[in-house]
């Protein structure tokens, strides 16, 4: 009898907490978030020419020489597949890692002939999520010459754009300085 009573209490309490923490809590949070921060709560989606063209938080793959490139993405089956976030999980001593990095370096050097050395590490290493929307300001500056040439623009103009779109640390302290690749490329198209 004792056990049955215990079991009954356990089941009732489980149901109550499923109701409170499993339904009421997420629904109330959704309500408040949708009311106060609808843009953020719905994925920070951006519109361009009346079309949804991406999320400010999810990276996209760029390989065209007239666009800024982001971090290499290991998601399957194609890069920046938002339905399947994943890191590369390459161990530092993995024998495949070094050749892979060398290949990325060679590609960068081929496309940025003025910058054979001093390659920014974020351009040759995969991000944690495979969807990293950002690169370091240094990685953007690194590509400026190539983009200026491909778009037949003044390099100074590109550098100015990078400076303008660089996001600084929060309160000058938290995080790292960075720049959003999709927003940068949209701004390029608008130039």
């Amino acid at each position: 009898m004792e056990v049955l009573k215990l079991l009954k209490t356990a089941i009732i309490l489980l149901l109550i907490f499923t109701l409170i923490t499993g339904f009421i809590y997420p629904i109330v949070v959704t309500g408040v978030a949708q009311f106060l921060f609808p843009f953020q709560a719905n994925g920070s989606l951006i519109k361009y020419h009346d079309k949804w063209i991406g999320s400010a938080l999810i990276g996209q793959s760029f390989t065209d020489e007239a666009y800024f490139w982001g971090r290499p993405s290991p998601t399957q089956p194609f890069p920046y597949n938002a339905e399947n976030s994943s890191g590369a999980n390459m161990g530092p001593s993995n024998p495949d890692f070094l050749p892979m990095v060398k290949m990325r370096i060679a590609l960068l050097q081929k496309n940025n002939p003025d910058k054979a050395r001093m390659i920014p590490i974020d351009l040759i290493t995969a991000s944690g999520s495979g969807l990293d929307p950002e690169i370091s300001p240094l990685a953007a500056t690194y590509q400026a010459e190539r983009i200026a040439k491909a778009r037949k623009l003044d390099k100074e103009k590109i550098l100015l754009l990078i400076q303008k779109l660089t996001k600084n640390r929060y309160l000058s302290v938290l995080g790292e300085p960075r720049i959003n690749v999709l927003q940068l490329n949209l701004a390029l198209d608008k130039l």
């Binding site: 997420p26 949070v29 959704t30 408040v32 978030a33 949708q34 106060l36 921060f37 953020q40 709560a41 719905n42 994925g43 920070s44 989606l45 079309k51 949804w52 063209i53 991406g54 999320s55 400010a56 938080l57 996209q60 793959s61 760029f62 390989t63 065209d64 666009y67 194609f78 890069p79 920046y80 339905e83 999709l182 490329n185 949209l186 198209d189």
Partner: peptide, 21 residues
């Protein structure tokens, strides 16, 4: 959620890529 963590019940949203893959 103010910082951009999503909170909704929508189905997955489809967007047009700037550069096709």
């Amino acid at each position: 959620s103010a910082q951009g963590v999503i909170q909704n019940f929508k189905p997955y949203q489809t967007i047009q890529l700037l550069q096709p893959i």
